[in-house]
Design a protein around this nucleic acid. Structure first.
Lengths: 322, 322
DNA sequence: TTGAAAGCGATACCAG
DNA sequence: CTGGTATCGCTTTCAA
């Protein structure tokens, strides 16, 4: 089905394509009589500007690529909502690329972004990712990048992460203040930067109280939490639990209710992405790391970078704590 | 930063752009010696084909638009995963547009899809949507559409939904077979088509057993479930519970554990989107409405429509039950 | 086996 | 105020 083009309109009205183009975008040079005729014609013939042609001409796609390590129910949906709200407001769209926890896939997605000429990239990295080699091409191409949540240490791109130290210490203090004597702390994937930083802060804080006994376990998934807890010999002796994420919490919660340990005097403190908490157990305490907020923040930083244009003007990469 | 183009390569190698273009895509006409030289040059000068130009030329974006009523943690993530797995395999990308439960926004998103010349549209509708008027333009433009999960009755576009009757009857039978005598059934928003159809099937089935007492409640959110249950006078007298979705289940679960009614002999049966179940309580029984499956199925149908090309050949819209 | 050239649709510069 | 024209990068006949 042939779609109406500017040229079609021009021929119908016996004027030039330039005039039609300008009339359509309300250029001040054009007489209002012409504008009216053009707009009417556009309306009747169902003219839809061809974004391909415009992108091609303008070398800007108004599209940004969102690369996430995996699409889970825990964090990603709220992040997407946050990103949406910012990008839609700015007339941008985005496509989602899930790395499925594979560094290789992540790398390919970056190629995809380059090929499809996205205007910018928002990325949260996989557990396997150790450096930013694969991102350097984006830098060369002068495609703005903002890394969020899961990152590796680097100073080439803006990044926004939660304030792990603050959140973790808050959590540790809750358990300490509650008078817990034996604490089980459940962390995520041991290889992740985020896990390590939370681990260190948590340990430091707890170790200031030598009488408190601390056991830490690392679990890549909620299922693994369940498994490990089930084979924990002295489960009942713990009087305090810490989970570093919604996912680890899920495993813990599942395990606690199975043993009828909910509604007990055990203290549970969680750093949570914020979706689940209100449905699990009123007695758990949460430090919320809001995905929506992170989404809006990261997207806003990207928009700023986009507008800054010439990147020579751009100061070096910045680190933001949420 | 100037990016290498085919023209650049052609000039460097003193051959024509046509030859370069063909060499790059391994056209049989081109001698292998030329191919090698071209590929080497492309490699060294970091040539990246310009998708804008290609799309423009080919009039195909390899992009499809995904419109969802809202981005929740319950269903959407798995649907997205399903869609991803199919589309990425076919070299397509997609962008996500969330209608935020607003018909108006949904309508705008459809315009967005048309303007950005997506090759196809996958859509799940808002609660406010009553007809497909706003989709007709897509038909005119010959953009293939597949409607999934939330739809209205129509016969213009392919659609894929869960088999509510089957799933609901299965659930009712579970409770009946377990010997439940007093059942509390929790449904979602009373205005939704999906709620009504599940309600009717459920009731019909239970009413075949006159001795069973059935109480039904409608709740727009998990929080409302919690509220209503908390003010239920004879809570303990129920020996069977039905929740029509993960969201209603969340409220029920929250309420059950609060009263220490988990791990009891109460029977809980749920029609679930499938993400949460394994983390809540092993004793609940689930009929899984798998979002991943729906995603792959809907995306596959869309791909088929895309390939069928000339739509005169296409038979009328089809309805699929999952 | 290769090259020349047209053209996809919109834009913007330069002229008038 | 309006028109002519080159151009973006690539693909694809048509010729050679």
């Amino acid at each position: 089905m042939k779609r109406t083009t500017i040229k079609d309109l021009a021929e119908m009205l016996n004027i030039s394509t330039s005039t039609v183009s300008r009339a359509l975008k309300d250029h001040p040079d054009i007489s209002s009589s012409v504008k009216i005729r053009v707009r009417e014609a556009a309306e009747t013939f169902n003219y839809v500007p061809n974004d391909f042609a415009i992108n091609f001409r303008k070398k800007s796609s108004k599209v940004i690529g969102l690369i996430v390590p995996e699409i889970t129910m825990f964090f990603v949906p709220s992040v997407i909502n946050g990103i949406s709200s910012v990008l839609n407001g700015e007339g941008y769209r985005f496509f989602i690329l899930s790395s499925n926890d594979s560094y290789q896939t992540e790398k390919e997605h970056i190629e995809t972004c380059i090929n499809s000429r996205v205007d910018g990239v928002l990325i949260s990295m996989t557990n396997e990712t150790r450096d930013i080699e694969h991102l350097k091409k984006l830098k060369e191409m002068e495609i703005p990048v903002v890394i969020f949540d899961k990152t590796v240490s680097q100073n080439m791109f803006d990044s926004v992460i939660f304030n792990n130290q603050k959140n973790t210490e808050w959590s540790a203090d809750k358990l300490i203040d509650h008078g817990c004597q034996k604490i089980l702390a459940i962390f995520g994937d041991e290889n992740l930067e985020i896990t390590q930083s939370r681990l260190i802060s948590f340990k430091n804080r707890i170790e200031q109280h030598p009488r408190i006994e601390l056991v830490t376990i690392f679990c890549k998934s909620a299922d693994m939490v369940k498994e490990k807890l089930n084979s924990l010999p002295d489960y009942h002796s713990f009087d305090g639990f810490f989970a570093m994420s919604d996912e680890t919490l899920m495993g813990l919660h599942s395990s606690l209710i199975k043993r009828n340990l909910n509604n007990s005097d055990k203290k549970v403190v969680v750093i949570s992405e914020g979706n689940l908490p209100k449905y699990l157990d009123d007695t758990y305490e949460y430090q919320i790391n809001d995905g929506y907020e992170m989404g809006t923040f990261a997207a806003s930083r990207l928009m700023e970078n986009l507008k800054k244009g010439s990147p020579d003007l751009k100061e070096s990469a910045q680190f933001y704590y949420l």
